[in-house]
Design a protein around this nucleic acid. Structure first.
Lengths: 347, 347
DNA sequence: CTGAAAGCGCTTACAG
DNA sequence: CTGAAAGCGCTTACAG
């Protein structure tokens, strides 16, 4: 029964129709699970689909429907832990819904460059998830033309999420509040902060959370020092702070920053946690294995990504299941890098 | 002159034609830079394109041409440094060539699951880059149907790269050779190895490189210990090795593994590099900031990703510029974690 | 140098 | 329940 001699190229809806002895519209109905098809007809079509290895063309579908089953993630970075984890969450959820996922990187925060990247992403025809943790991302979110389905992943919602442009976020305010309180409760006089770029915005939730904790404790409010995203920036910031003997507790915008700070303190001869306590954000995979292991606040980036997709999916398809998409609350993970202050408290 | 009252939706080729007073075929010629168009006509069309904000539909283009300007990266992971960097390299090159990039994650190495993921990626209609560093990726590369443009990113080429299915790789054999030699040259009797999953394959280039260095030095050849991809696996492997006092040098399949090993040695009370030397692969951003900072072999993953795209681009388009795509050779980076052996050599 | 026709593989009304 | 028509926005021959 070796009759697999198709003409050429993948089988189309018409090939299937011919094989099943029906019109191609009927094939369309079957593959779209349209109710009004006689069971016998359906069976014949399905058999032909199977036999020819038919796969419906996503491109043709997109052209005919005017919208493609694609979500493209716009982000300034794909390698740092938080960004990468959000991307992963989106991909997981998209895959489960049989969506394709694209990624566009915002190489620069330059207005024209960002606009170009947004256009390119829009050309793909699906929905957008914009990671707006940094200037480039924030700008991209603003540049998305009205009518294009988009959900933003933001640090702090700038205003109540509009129905047509929803946002997802983690409770960074609470996260910073808890971490600061933890450090304060250990007996530190105040808590310094090494900021990631997103914290630059006046409305930063983390800055606000830390401020609140500091205020409640009547502690001094030293200004945040900029650290960037990676270990190198943390190292530079750490060197600065290490020179000030009054500094005994440092909270960092992410674990990579904290790693750099740890190194700077080591070089400056200031033991952690003996003299200085350090905490980060994210709970990246390696943080538990550093020496000293890092106290941090675990943030559910993957859940955030999944939630973003769920929202987009709902906007894109009426019939999309309104799946619950819980984003776990930030969780303080206390490890070796934080302890009571004191010149020689080490045990 | 506020005449921006288009009917609805984005402008199509016909809208532009109407505005310019030509047929839509002429518009097609202009946007495709076809030579035979009168300059004056071209100018009129271009003006209309500008005025209407026309963007050619990628979907329609793909349907008409039978191929889309997309590259989708198939990978078992998007978060680990090596994988993420390759993805970034592909994205950079693809963006420069005005290609879209998609990503498909191989959640399981299960044959059926991998095949389904490959089909999904194929449905998108462009080319594929498959990261085949692990069983899932290797299987995916095999499952790609003939005729679909694909380039594999592999640890070791299994055979001379076929013309229709090229491969890119870093010289892992050389990298492992150099790292092992470095450790040996410090005076260690032999070098243990904590492997990443890709090293499981009998043809592993790294295993071969290390073996060669060991053989040349007439050193014992302890079998590799499996570590997985992350710090947790490195930690477990490190605990095992730490218990053996004869172990004084450990090479790890990647920097995350090395980080876990470092932690295990610390807990076991074996100072690095005083008693044991450790080296990794990759030179991840944080490796220079660990304490001790990590000796490692820098691998050009981003260049690898760019090279993979260049190859694919060439296969997809006759006219694609044959851009040189150099992948830097592995580079040994000596830091604090490696030193001369000896119970108490610490300075 | 430019226009009219057919087709890429589907879907969405419209008939029957 | 099923088929014939028109159209999604382009490109690719074919004419002129």
């Amino acid at each position: 029964m070796e009759v697999t001699g198709h003409t050429r190229g993948p089988a189309s809806i018409r090939d299937v129709a011919a094989a099943a002895g029906v019109s191609y519209q009927t094939v369309s109905r079957v593959i779209n699970a349209h109710p009004s098809v006689r069971p016998a007809t359906r069976a014949r079509v399905l058999a032909a689909v199977e036999e020819l290895g038919f796969r419906r063309s996503a491109t043709a579908l997109a052209l005919a429907r005017g919208r493609s089953r694609t979500v493209t993630v716009l982000t300034a970075d794909t390698t740092h832990y938080g960004y990468a984890s959000i991307l992963r969450g989106v991909e997981e959820a998209a895959r489960a819904a049989a969506y394709s996922v694209g990624v566009g990187v915002l190489e620069s925060a330059d207005e024209a460059a960002v606009a170009a990247e947004v256009r390119r992403a829009a050309d793909v025809g699906g929905g957008l998830v914009v990671i707006a943790y940094d200037p480039a991302g924030v700008r991209a979110l603003e540049a998305v033309p009205a009518g294009l389905p988009v959900v933003g992943v933001v640090e702090t919602p700038a205003s109540p999420p509009a129905d047509d442009r929803p946002w997802v976020w983690t409770d960074d305010r609470e996260a910073a509040y808890r971490a600061t309180r933890h450090l304060l409760s250990l007996g530190h006089e105040t808590v310094h902060y090494v900021a990631i770029p997103s914290d630059t915005r006046p409305a930063s939730a983390r800055i606000a959370g830390r401020r609140q904790a500091l205020t409640e404790a009547d502690a001094p409010q030293p200004p945040p020092v900029q650290g960037g995203w990676g270990p190198a920036g943390g190292y530079a910031a750490g060197l600065k702070l290490a020179g000030d003997p009054s500094v005994t507790a440092i909270l960092c915008g992410n674990d990579d920053l904290a790693l750099g700070v740890l190194r700077a303190l080591h070089e400056a001869g200031r033991p952690v946690p003996g003299e200085v306590s350090v905490a980060g954000f994210d709970d990246a995979p390696h943080s538990a294995y550093l020496t000293p292991s890092l106290t941090t606040v675990r943030l559910d980036f993957t859940g955030l990504g999944r939630a973003a997709f769920a929202l987009l999916h709902g906007a894109l398809e009426e019939s999309a299941p309104i799946t619950p998409h819980p984003v776990s609350a930030p969780e303080l993970v206390v490890r070796e890098s934080s302890g009571r202050p004191g010149p020689t408290d080490g045990g």
